[in-house]
Simulated scan of single mutants.
Amino acid sequence: MNLSELTARLHAIRDHNDWKRFHSPKNLAMAASVEMAELVEIFQWLGEDESRRLPPDQLDHAGQEVGDIVLYLLLLCSELGIDMEQVVRAKLTDSERRFRT
């Protein structure tokens, strides 16, 4: 996954639709949170086993919501000047240090 390419494509959509004025860090964080809530809603009343065996339409829906979340986070990182790949790698390294046995 080339995050720079994805971000550039998102910026093209944003700029074509004149949405930059709405893409403050606050608004993008809130939008990502709303999309996360939509993902959670898919699993809301499922048991543990059911949540691991989503029917194809629900699995597709979950994938769409994951995509929405990632795209909003890419835009948020862009607005804040955060290198997503760098912070994800740093967090993973920290988790490996803290939780590996």
Results as ranks from 00 to 15, higher is better:
94 D>A: 14
23 H>E: 15
11 H>D: 13
10 L>Q: 09
31 A>P: 00
28 L>G: 00
84 M>T: 03
91 K>Y: 08
44 Q>E: 00
60 D>C: 08
42 I>Q: 01
12 A>G: 08
67 G>V: 00
64 Q>F: 10
8 A>R: 13
74 L>P: 01
5 E>R: 15
13 I>D: 13
77 C>I: 01
2 N>A: 10
29 A>W: 04
64 Q>C: 09
96 E>L: 12
62 A>R: 02
25 P>Y: 12
46 L>K: 06
11 H>V: 12
24 S>K: 07
76 L>M: 03
9 R>P: 07
84 M>D: 03
40 V>D: 06
61 H>T: 12
24 S>L: 09
20 K>S: 15
23 H>W: 15
8 A>S: 14
101 T>F: 14
94 D>H: 13
17 N>P: 11
94 D>L: 12
6 L>P: 05
99 F>E: 10
88 V>P: 02
44 Q>F: 09
40 V>W: 00
41 E>P: 00
55 P>A: 08
57 D>G: 05
67 G>P: 03
23 H>M: 15
31 A>F: 06
72 Y>L: 03
55 P>Y: 04
93 T>E: 09
96 E>F: 11
78 S>Q: 10
89 R>F: 09
90 A>G: 03
59 L>I: 05
56 P>Q: 06
37 A>E: 06
85 E>L: 07
1 M>K: 00
32 A>T: 02
23 H>F: 14
91 K>D: 10
30 M>L: 12
54 L>I: 05
98 R>F: 13
98 R>N: 11
47 G>L: 10
78 S>N: 11
20 K>Q: 15
10 L>E: 11
45 W>R: 05
65 E>Y: 04
78 S>W: 07
87 V>F: 04
13 I>C: 13
80 L>I: 04
62 A>W: 01
5 E>Q: 14
73 L>M: 03
62 A>S: 07
97 R>S: 11
29 A>C: 08
30 M>R: 11
2 N>D: 15
86 Q>E: 13
97 R>C: 07
5 E>C: 12
13 I>E: 14
22 F>I: 02
95 S>M: 12
23 H>V: 01
73 L>G: 04
88 V>E: 04
4 S>L: 12
5 E>L: 15
98 R>P: 06
95 S>F: 12
94 D>S: 12
1 M>D: 14
81 G>R: 03
81 G>F: 07
